[in-house]
Design a protein around this nucleic acid. Structure first.
Length: 411
DNA sequence: GTTGTCTGCCCC
DNA sequence: ATTCTGC
DNA sequence: GCAGAATGGGCAGACAAC
């Protein structure tokens, strides 16, 4: 990928990879290999070192590492900043000379999808030139409640955007300042970036600052996390107060903690395997790439998720061997499924699965009604329940109850 | 015109 | 998105 | 630790089939 190309450029001048870090930084600040090449080969390393972001070249976003508990995060960062984690689109907003462009996490230009955000930015941000980031999501104006990601994502569209924006306005929660009026803020420490961002935020209905606090004890971190979760957020992102904004990298300067990482708050259910897929690439050699799983409804088994992650290579081999022995030429009569796995399996083997939440599904048959069922979001394998048989699996009714519980949890 | 199936430098 | 693995 | 490669649900859109 880009790394190889950048290494090659480094060799042309230095004879080794020594220039890689600085060249990479320039690339991460503009996402533009051509521009970096032009500057490097015409002006040299001096100009590369002086490189800074500029409006309308998207910066490759910084990403967060993850840990499982507030205590672990505090051990790593000590006193730190903590922000609420909102479940929507990550947007990078650029404004200059009265013009606004918006870029996605993958540096796609998505301005046309967010006319309401564009208007809000123009109205609210007290800056001539700015690059900042935040999370945009749908909210209910009357109750002030956040809408599920499934609602927010309907904004990702080409047609009927303004109608959608009227029906379902977005709110953007800003959390990072990267550039302001000619100055590169990515090298400034977090606390300075946040302070400046706070200063230039004007009043309005569209852009707001992301919930944020500075904690000095693990206990305070835990408390803020609990508050965020009970107010309907996904979790938190903790940030090193003195770290710069590291474009294009997943670093421990940012650490996320989600509701689902905790054993207590995660949705963990026991599902029955009803089929498997052969898999692609490296997984071909194990003979298994994923599982089709179901919950129990009386004497029927209704699909609720495919599982494609969480197993080791050895486990994939074991599944392939053991499941092949109970395979079925056709879909077993007691299984309800719209999906067809490569191999059907008699519903015998129970596995424990973790998920972030339960969503409405167009393809899974669990609790199917009016052309819609229920599915697991981000399903992953935890372990095989050798102690359980198909009769002991989680029931469809229990999944419905979890779904109802989760709907009211964020109220 | 309607319905079904598949895809996406896709969003998470 | 999550997770595992080779480096 | 990091980067890469497997995989998940599900949306709007594109296109084929009817």
């Amino acid at each position: 990928g880009e790394a190889t190309i950048i290494d090659a450029w480094s060799f042309t001048e230095a004879g080794d990879k020594s220039l890689r870090v600085e060249l990479e930084r320039a690339f991460n600040l503009t996402s533009d290999l051509g521009l970096v090449a032009e500057v490097f080969f015409t002006k040299g390393m001096g100009a590369i070192r002086a490189f800074k972001p500029h409006p309308f070249s998207p910066i490759r976003p910084a990403l967060a590492e993850r840990l499982n508990t507030a205590a672990e995060i505090f051990e790593k960062l000590g006193a730190c900043a903590v922000e609420g984690k909102y479940d929507g689109f990550r947007l990078q907003v650029h404004m200059s000379a009265g013009k606004v462009e918006i870029y996605s996490r993958k540096q796609e230009r998505v301005t046309h999808m967010f006319p309401d955000v564009v208007a809000g930015v123009k109205k609210q941000m007290r800056a001539r030139e700015i690059i900042f980031e935040g999370e945009a999501l749908a909210y209910n104006e009357d109750t002030g409640e956040f809408l599920p990601f499934q609602e927010t994502i309907t904004r990702k569209r080409k047609y009927g955007v303004s109608k959608k924006a009227e029906e379902m306005p977005l709110r953007m929660f800003a959390f990072e300042l990267l550039y302001l009026d000619g100055k590169d803020w990515t090298n400034e420490p977090y606390h300075a970036r946040r302070k400046k961002l706070t200063e230039i935020m004007g009043k309005g209905d569209v852009v707001a600052l992301a919930k944020n606090v500075i904690v000095k004890t693990p206990k305070a971190l835990q408390k803020f996390f609990d508050e965020c979760v009970s107010s309907g957020l996904e979790g938190i992102v903790a940030k090193d107060l003195s770290a710069p904004y590291v474009a294009g990298a997943r670093k421990f300067a940012w650490i996320k903690l989600k509701r689902s990482y905790s054993e207590k708050l995660a949705d963990t259910i026991d599902v029955v395997i009803v089929g498997f897929y052969y898999g692609k690439g490296k997984r071909t050699e194990f003979g298994l790439g994923g599982l089709l799983t179901a919950v129990k409804a009386g004497d029927r088994f209704r699909t609720v998720a495919k599982i494609g992650t969480g197993f080791s290579e050895a486990q994939m081999r074991e599944f392939h061997d053991s499941l092949s022995k109970i395979s079925s030429k056709q879909k077993p009569a007691e299984v309800d499924s719209l999906l067809t796995p490569d191999v059907w399996v008699k519903p015998r083997v129970v596995v424990e699965v973790k998920a972030d939440e339960i969503t409405r599904s167009p393809v899974h048959k669990c609790a199917w009604k009016d052309n819609e069922g229920l599915a697991l979001r981000f399903p992953r394998l935890m372990r095989v329940r050798t102690d359980k048989g198909a009769d002991d699996a989680t029931t469809e009714k229990e999944v419905v109850e979890l779904y109802e519980l989760q709907k009211h949890a964020s109220a």
